[in-house]
Design a binder for these strands. Structure first.
Length: 473
DNA sequence: CTATGGCACGGATT
DNA sequence: AATCCGTGCCATAG
């Protein structure tokens, strides 16, 4: 309460509160739909496009100083800079940070895939292209693949092949990436190119996918290495990159259909709601935390509508009043949501900087209740804020926001290290002893569970000789 | 007999 | 009130 008033927001009404809560649970994607719905229904609402900071070219939220260029307004100088971005996550181009795992999110809530994609592309498509896109999306098979190659589609929609190809390319690069390709190989290739940031790993992955897909399926790394003239180690790393970061069946993550064993695709790439980066000009400076907007731009009450309201025709006056009221409530709720997210991230990033920068090992146990207390909100609010959101770390890893509250993550990380560094397979009891030596007290049974969630085989089935790493692709 | 996984219980968290 | 998590006990596989 105190905090909220400090932020200069209006006092809360119950309607306000209820709606804010309902917005808070939504992920960015879901929020996009919600906002769109409200915009369609309410003429008093307006979505204003994106602006860019003249000096740093980062997108600018509203008027005032650019958050990227200025120091944090108050508080600790070493704290992170948290700001709301008018950029939407579809602008986000993922990078990779070496051999770390990239993303392992639960699949997003099922939604209508064609609609989801069309909304992303709305701005890029015009006239006929929309129809073509809709046709293509509706003709995909269950896995998200194209049934007919581009020329046949072109004939079906009576459009030039070049146009169809352009639309296809757009769909393939939208989220989920690799959709509307013809086979897993193509899907992976598209995804790999999207991840290509010029460094060698995605490059190699692209080459391997393009030129040696068969061998990759058979895990014939030596063969690939020989044929492409690359070191075997590099090929193996590329294979593991592919396995960890790419998804051969783009649609699966979105339908979340239980047809596949859940283990088969925990690697679904997911668009983040929040992006944490380092300031490139100040590598050791504070972390930059960017909270994406559901669409590029921001929301406000349409000033023209407000102006027109005073001179509204008599018979519409009430109706327009309602629109205005509803619009300003909605805007307030969005602000409230943004505000809560911003404050939450500020706390999270401040307290878990080591976790973000140095990895899972450094995650300090924290509970939602404790954070709720610090934020002076109800714990259910924190739960909602944390739900359904994903955050991209500087290294490029994308993790669910919920990961910050994983009680056993750091211990599991140590277990992973022990196992990967073991000379001979250690039994659970021996792992318990090793953990004890490092000052971590857990029961044997618990180690077994950690192994299970990390997908580590029991000692008997672990062989020091062969790497169990590259499972299925 | 040893190492593991299943089941279930109690306490903490949501 | 519902859920999650660590753990102990016990059956079973090797």
């Amino acid at each position: 309460m105190l905090q909220i008033q400090e932020q200069g927001l209006r006092p809360l009404t119950t309607a306000h509160l209820a709606q804010t809560m309902s917005l808070l649970v939504l992920s960015n994607q879901e929020l996009r739909h919600r906002v769109q719905e409200e915009l369609d229904r309410n003429p008093a609402l307006e979505w204003v496009g994106e602006r860019v900071c003249p000096s740093c070219h980062r997108p600018l939220h509203r008027a005032g100083p650019c958050p990227s260029c200025t120091a944090p307004p108050s508080g600790r100088a070493d704290g992170p800079i948290v700001f709301l971005s008018p950029r939407s996550a579809s602008h986000f181009t993922p990078r990779h940070g070496g051999d770390e795992d990239y993303a392992d999110l639960e699949p997003a809530a099922p939604e209508d895939l064609p609609v989801h994609v069309l909304q992303q592309l709305a701005a890029d498509l015009q006239g006929d292209e929309r129809t073509i896109a809709a046709y293509i999306l509706s003709s995909l098979d269950d896995e998200g693949f194209l049934q007919d190659p581009a020329p046949i589609v072109a004939r079906a929609v009576h459009a030039p092949l070049s146009v169809v190809e352009r639309v296809l390319a757009l769909i393939q690069q939208a989220d989920p990436p690799g959709l509307a390709t013809e086979c897993p190989r193509q899907a992976l290739l598209v995804q790999a190119r999207l991840l290509d940031d010029g460094s060698s790993l995605p490059r190699t992955a692209c080459r391997v996918l393009a030129e040696a897909f068969e061998e990759l399926g058979r895990r014939d790394y030596e063969g690939i290495a020989a044929r492409l003239g690359l070191p075997t180690g590099q090929v193996k790393r590329a294979a593991s990159f592919v396995q960890k970061n790419l998804n051969p069946y783009p649609a699966r993550g979105y339908w979340g259909s239980g047809r596949q064993a859940p283990r088969a695709d925990p690697n679904v790439y997911h668009t983040p709601d929040i992006l944490i980066t380092r300031n490139p000009t100040l590598p050791q400076g504070p972390l930059m935390v960017e909270i994406f907007s559901p669409m590029p731009g921001w929301l406000r009450v349409n000033p023209l509508f407000r102006q027109a309201q005073s001179s509204a025709p008599e018979e519409h006056s009430d109706e327009w009043d309602q629109h205005l009221e509803r619009a300003s409530l909605f805007v307030k709720c969005m602000q409230q949501r943004n505000n809560t997210m911003r404050r939450l991230l500020e706390i999270l990033v401040t307290q878990q900087q080591d976790f973000i920068v140095h990895g899972d090992r450094f995650l300090q146990p924290m509970t939602r209740a404790k954070i709720a207390h610090e934020l002076a909100v109800h714990e259910s609010t924190v739960s909602r804020a944390v739900a359904h959101k994903a955050v991209a770390f500087p290294g490029g890893r994308i993790v669910p926001l919920m990961r910050f509250f994983d009680r056993s993550l750091s211990v599991r990380d140590v277990v992973k290290e022990i196992v990967s560094g073991e000379k001979r397979p250690l039994t659970d009891d021996q792992i318990v002893a090793e953990l004890g030596r490092r000052g971590i007290a857990v029961a044997r049974r618990t180690v077994a569970k950690y192994r299970a969630v990390e997908g580590i085989l029991p000692a008997r089935l672990r062989h020091p000789k062969q790497e169990a790493a590259a499972a299925r692709i």
